[in-house]
Every structure is written in C-alpha cells, then in structure tokens.
Amino acid sequence: MWAYVVRRLWQMIPTMLGVVLLVFILFNLFGGDPAYVLAGKISNPDQIDNIRRQLGVDQPYYIQLGIFLKQIVTGNFGASWSTNEPVSHILATRLGPSMTVLVPLLIIETIVAVGLALAVAYVRGSLTDRAVMIVCTVGLSISILVYIIVFQYVFAYKLGWFPVQGWGDSFWENLVRYASLPILIGLVVSIAPNLRLYRTFVLDEINQDYVRTARAKGVSENRIMWVHVLRNASIPIITHVMAALPGLLIGAFLLERFFSIPGIGREVILAVERSDFPVIKALTVYVAVATMAVNLLADLMYKAVDPRVQLK
C-alpha cells in the first residue's frame, strides 16, 4: 500500500515536468507580450525594453524556464504583473468564493442525481424513465449562457427572488443570499448529464448476478436498491465526483462573471486578458498538482470500497 503511494508520487514528477514544459512553451513562446499593455497609452521602444527588462522576459528562454522551475519548487510564484498582488494572495482570497458556490453545488447535485438515478433505474424502460431521460437531454442541450441570461433576468430581476449580483463579507450571507441563484443554475446545468451517467452505473449493477441472487433469497426490492446496488454503484460515482474536484479550483467563470462572485474563474479570464503570466502559470501548476493528488486519492478510495481491486 505505502509502496504504491510512494511509487505513484514518484511518477508524478515526470508528469509535472511535462506540464511545466507545456505551460512554459504555450505562454512564454507563444503567449502575448505583456509589455505593450503594461506600457500604457503612449510608449516608446525604450520604455518597452525597460518593462521587458523589469519583468525578466528579455532573458534567454532557458533562464526563464529555470526561474519558473525555481518558483514551483519554492512555491513562490511572485506577483501579478498588472496589479502587483502576490499570486499566493490571489489564490488564498479567490478560492473561498469559488468554493462557496461549487462545493454546495457539487453536494446537492450528487445527492439529487444519485437519488433520481436510482429511482429511474428502478423503473427502467418505463414511460417515466424515458420521460425523465428526455427532459434531462433537453435540459442539457441548452447552452449555459442561455440559462444564465434568462435565469438572471427572470428570477433575479423580474421576480426579485434573488439579488441580481453581489458578494458580501459573511460566509452565510454569501451562501444563502448571493450564491443561491448561481447554485441553482449550476444544478440545472449539471444534474442532467450526471443523472444520465449515474443511471448507467446503476443499471450496470442491476444486471449483476448478486442482484439476482439477493432477489432469489427474498431480499426486499428497496433493500436491494438502496443497499446492494447503491453500494456497488457508488464506486464509479465516487470516482466521477472525485474527478470533478480539481475543477473546483478553477471555479465557474461564467457564473462568477455574471453574478459578481470574486472567484478564481474570473481571475483566470482577467489574467489571460492581461497576459498576466505569473498568475496563469501558478494556477495551472496548482491545479495540475491537485488533479494528480485527487486521482491518487480516488484510486486509494476505490481500493478501500472494493477490496478486490488490485493496486499495481
């Protein structure tokens, strides 16, 4: 077990190097030149040179890469080029709001989707099953952009059920008052695909021999569904939910933009618009590390839930 964890951690190093290299190539070689934007309305070549020197982008690529590697090892990514805000501070302050929206969203969505999945799988093939699946499919074929525009207009403005936008200082105020409409939109968008997916997981299990055996032994249908099937279907479901976790770090930029949520997603778009490489590179590295860690965790959990799984 521990040997496995150590080996997996060891294997992360080449992947990490690959990520670093790819990010470096994409942004340092092909990304925009920030100097001109930072120079303001009137600039002359002299000032541009000066800015490039101050930012260190006039250095040879291998030195820039070296600096980047050093930053990763020390965990100090410097400061944003346009605002001077330390990257660590950006992460520390923007993560909370993103999580305030996405964590409840993930939890509610999983509970609802799993519950519905069990229900429709139970009546698989029936008219209800098909109707729910069609509604889901229609639901997920509408662009999230349309949902946001229409929901904000109808629920926040016309009906006044929610504030149009905003963000406060207290966690509860944010969660209940400001995050509820974004969460609702998130639910509408993400329940449909997940319900469809979880339904197939449940169906997979329903067809297994153990279900037939249990049924033959006279176990009640409810018990079969909620205990046997759910326990086994939970493995792919957990894997799936875990895979969604690193995405939380990046936030939901559309929701954040439209509802004035000071989260990471908005910061990412801002950083790309400003060619703010320190911020972009740091975020990429952090999320990559998180993704790998979560993947490892998922495999370990998988093992814990199902002892038959061989970790190799």
Binding site: G115, A119, V120, S126, D129, V176, R177, S180, I191, A192
Partner: peptide, 26 residues
C-alpha cells in the same frame, strides 16, 4: 413494484423554496 420517480422539476423547486426561505431569514 413501481416507484414513482420524482420529476426533476419538483426537486429543483423544492430547493428553490428552501433557499428562498433562507433568504428571507437572513
């Protein structure tokens, strides 16, 4: 045995309602 599944709409509306009440409280 057939269990009537919950249509998606009711659940979301229920959540809405909960959130709404919470809104008023805060």
């Amino acid at each position: 045995p057939t269990v009537a599944p919950l249509p998606g709409g009711i659940v979301t509306r229920a959540i809405e309602l909960v959130l709404l009440v919470a809104c008023l409280l805060c």
